[in-house]
Structure formats: C-alpha cells, structure tokens
Design a protein around this nucleic acid. Structure first.
Lengths: 299, 299
DNA sequence: ATGGTAATGTGAGTTTTTCTCAAGTGTCAT
DNA sequence: ATGACACTTGAGAAAAACTCACATTACCAT
C-alpha cells in the first residue's frame, strides 16, 4: 500500500526554495509570505527529522540530505508540471462539439455556421445532429442545444439562451384560406404535429383561446410525425397546418414558404445549452453569448 | 517562473483513486473518508475543467483525459515516493555521532562503549572528543554530551541526563592528610582548577561552608589548567587538590587513585545531551535513556 | 564601530482548506 | 422488490496554512 509520502505542500515549498536558493524568492513565486515558506520547510525537516538547509547567514544552502531530496523532488515536479501543462493544453485546444436537434441545425444553425466560425475561431466548433434525446450521454460531446421545459436537469450545467415561441404555420396556399379569419378556422384544416412535443398544440391553443376538446379531436384527425424535420417537410408540401418553434422556421417565414396566420406564443420551455461534465464553463458562456446575440440581432 | 501546478493534495487523491480504481479504496489508503477523496477529485476536475473519471455505475473508470493525467502523475509520484523513501532510509541508517568532552570520554564513556554498542546496536554510535565548546557547530555531529548550567540554549533540543556533582579530590598521599579533618584544611593545600569552570570551587566551597575570601586567595595561589583532562592528570600526580565532576573520576575513586575527603555536592549544572538540528528525537532519547540507566545502575 | 539593509525565524491570531458525518442517489445482484 | 455497495453532496467541525508584526542574525558600507 504505497503511502508514506511527506506533506506535499511542504515539498512544493522546499522545491521552490531549493531551486531558487532563497525562502523569500520562493515565497514570491508561490505568492505567499516568506513566513509561510519558512514554516513549510521546517515542517518538512521535522517530517524527515533532518535539516535540509544549512542556514548560511543571510541565505540558505542545501545540506547533504537536502541535495539528495532535491534531486528526486525536482525531477518529480518537472514531470508533474509537464504533464499537467500538457493536459491543460489538450483541453484548451480540444474542439467544442455541439449536439443540436436536426431541424434546428439544418434550418437555423447551419446558415450561420460560417459567421460563427469566423467570430469564435478559438472555439473550434464541431456540430452534429442529435436526433431524439437532447441529453448528451456520449463522451465526445461538449454541450447540447435543446428546447427544454422546467425543471432543468440538476446534474449538469444549463445556460439559458432564449424563450421558445411556437406558432401554427402552413404553406402559403393553405395560409391564404386562414389569414384574417378567427382561430377556429384552424379546426377545418389537417393538423400536423410531432410525437416528441405533444404539448405544443395544447399550449398554443390555450394561449390563442381555441376550445380544448375541439383541438384534441382535430389533432386526432390529423397526422403525427416522428421528428420536427419531417413535420416541417409536410407543412412545406402543403399537407396541413403544423406547430413549430419560430426559431426553426425563421428562414421559411422570411422566404414566404411558410406563413403563421395567427402569430407565435411564448411557452415555458427555453432554448438551453446543456454543458457536459468537464466542459469549460467559459467556452459554454462564449457560445451562449454568441447565440443570444445572433437571436436578438436584426440580421 | 514555474508555477501553474494543480492542488497537490488533490493530485494525491486522484493518483490513489486512479491506481486503485476506487474512491473508497483510495480513501482507505489515505486514511480519510471516501467523501474527502471524492471532493478532492472534484476539485481537480474543476481545476482542469474536464472530467477525469467516467462514473460507471458502481465504480469509476478513467476518462481519456484522466488516463493522460495518470500517466504523468503516477510516474512523478513513483519518483517522489522512491526518493523520499531513500532519504528516510539514509537518515535512519546514518551513524549517530556523539561529541563528548575529552575527559568524560576517556574516563567514563570509553570503558562503557563496548556495552553501549552491544545494547544499542541500531544507534551505530560514533564518538569524538569535543575540546572546548560543548556546542556542535559541525554538521556531522548528531549530538553533544556536556555539563551545562541553566539557562539552556533554546535553539536546540536539550535532554537532561543527570545532575552534576562535584567534589574536591586528591591523590591518596595528599588525601591522607585531609581525611577526617575540617574543610578548612583544604586551604593549606595547592588548589588546582580549570579555566573552563571558574565557578566550580566557589560553588563547592559555599556548599561546604568554606570562607569565600580564603578560598579565593587559595585558588590564586594554586594552578589553573586549560582542560579538565590536564587538571586530573595533575591531581593524579599529587600536585594538589582538584575540583572535578564525580562522573569523570568515578573510575579513579574506585581504584583508589583519587580520594574525595569531603564528598561531593550537587550543582545547578546538569549533564545534558544537546541534539543537533535534524537529529531524530528518538535516537537521542534512546541514548539518553541508556546513559541514565548506566548512571543509576550499581555496575 | 555603527547603522543600514536584507535575509530568515517565530508567536499569535485569522483565514482557508480539508475532513467528517449523515443523508441522498444510482447500480447491481439476489 | 430489496439489500448491499459505491459515489456524491450539504453543513458544520477540525486542521492546516497563511499573514502580520516583530525578533534575530549576518553582511556591508560608511
């Protein structure tokens, strides 16, 4: 059972003092007072029951035992410093891998990736689509972008980016029949939704005052898709009225390929960045700041 | 300026946990609770902003970064353990060098050296005569044996062995003229003393009730020697009456070569073992215990 | 010599770190 | 399910480390 190590902080003080030949200089290097270093060295001498330095008037000189100890300790500390430094560099240089729902990735993030790379080059961002679960169990993912509703998971850091707004959207030909008419007109159309967000229509409906029962019946008569991506393709193809986060379809609204006859409502969900364990906080904050800016900018 | 070392105690906990693959086992090895080790590892992960272990259900597995760190750290700790262990061994095995006043060495210690070596073989004792200063400035001396009066030096450990007793002694032919007579008979003899203990005669005289002035005059008429060793040779040669510690002349008393007509008195001085800086306390205590035993034993 | 400077050593009190205890959570095996 | 086991975590206690101020010692220039 390897034990029998001397107090390590005392060794650190000794190593510095031995290398610099001075308690005072060692104290400066370690950012403490000389008294602290002096005490640590005494503690080490007490541990070994020997004197490590000869007190030579104004300065210190290593004793025979001190020299012997320094040989091993300085070698060990050099190794330690080198490997810790190497690890820090590797961590610093590691690419930041962001998992992102496929639809958001394709429709919102990818068009902005070039600018993101230009404005945050140090991040060395990789993106990949996370279909299904928003939570990165995989080890090589630094963070995940996802719409999640409270309560947020407590086992990883969560950075809030923006509120989610959702709305009913449809291709222009369908929308033409709805614009300007009361919300109930919706019930005459084919309702499209995703299995992953069963609360989306009810939430929107409540905010817009659609009768709950009627909406449920209309949904049952409509169609459900596995992913938001397919839902949006269906809406674009004119199959019916879909419910979708504004963010994802922003481009489609602008180009006129989709229209939201009754606008958008805010939900309790938020667009969040979920940091994986061990992802540097500042990297996550940098990305979050960029995302926020990009969302509020007129662009 | 080499700095940028992670917290060393956290590294120690990490090293043990990585080597043993378990927080609990590491805690046992380090003699702390598993909670403490867990925290230290978290601190290290926070330092590097990465996760060093994958929490694999019931146990821990090193992550990629953890493995990278372990490589360097375990090497460094191996070096550290080896060199500290080597130093401890060297210190443990180092011979114990005792400085001792020449007269005490020759007349008391040397006759007992053989037994001392036999009874304390682990001490690996060397002895050398320290003429003059009782204080070992020399680096290769582990301890010094000396009669010293309070106050004792505060800058080194002092172990008290026994009270000093001194007495007036003379060769048998002189002593024959004194034995049985009052102390004042002393004043008619040649007084011998050492320059190194000018207080010896006055102390003895006061205890025995000799008039101070008369004694001072007698001393001025007598002879002073540089060392106790010469003083005793003079006494043995019948040059006069000497004052000497009982311990030093014990052998001479026993053999009848010296006689103490009025016995011995205790002084405020003590036979002490002065430990040099860095001498293991237990070595000093062992020697002191042996010396005490030898002094009180009938032998 | 004498005073100035520069270094280490140390006593007392405070701050910071680390540890323990106890409860919480998740996993595995029966 | 249930118990055993292992890691995590919050709060308070214990221990270590640090700072401050002063003491001590040696060197050096005047």
């Amino acid at each position: 059972m390897p034990e029998s190590l001397p107090p390590l902080n005392a060794l650190k003080a000794f190593e510095a003092a031995a290398r610099l030949g001075s308690v005072t200089l060692a104290a400066q290097e370690l950012s403490v007072t000389h008294g602290a270093v002096s005490r640590q060295i005494r503690a080490l001498e007490a541990h070994f029951e020997t004197s490590l330095f000869e007190r030579a008037g104004r300065g210190l000189v290593l004793s025979r035992h001190g020299r012997q100890l320094q040989a091993g300790v300085s070698e060990a500390f050099t190794v330690l410093r080198a490997s810790c430094r190497a690890l820090s560099r590797d961590i610093e240089d590691a690419p930041f891998t962001l998992a992102c729902p496929g639809s958001l990735l394709a429709r919102w993030l990818i068009p902005r990736l070039d600018r993101l790379h230009r404005e945050l080059p140090a991040l060395r961002l990789n993106v990949l689509a996370s279909d299904g679960e928003p939570d990165p169990g995989r080890n090589d993912i630094s963070a995940a972008l996802a719409f999640i509703a409270p309560p947020w998971p407590s086992d990883r850091q969560v950075i809030e980016i923006a509120a989610e707004t959702i709305g009913a959207v449809a291709a222009p030909d369908i929308a033409a029949r709805l614009t300007g008419r009361p919300v109930e007109a919706l019930l005459e159309e084919t309702i499209l939704e995703t299995a992953s967000r069963p609360q989306a229509w009810p939430q929107w409906g409540q905010a817009r005052g659609v009768e709950r029962e009627a909406l449920t019946r209309a949904r049952q008569a409509g169609q459900s898709f596995e992913h938001l991506y397919y839902l949006l393709e269906a809406a674009l193809a004119g199959l019916g009225v879909a419910i979708a986060p504004r963010l994802v379809i922003e481009g489609d609204l602008k180009s006129g390929r989709l229209v939201a006859p009754w606008g958008f409502v805010e939900t309790d969900a938020r667009l969040c960045l979920l940091l994986a364990r061990g992802t540097p906080r500042h990297s996550g904050e940098a990305l979050a700041a960029w995302l926020r800016h990009e969302l509020t900018a007129p662009a």
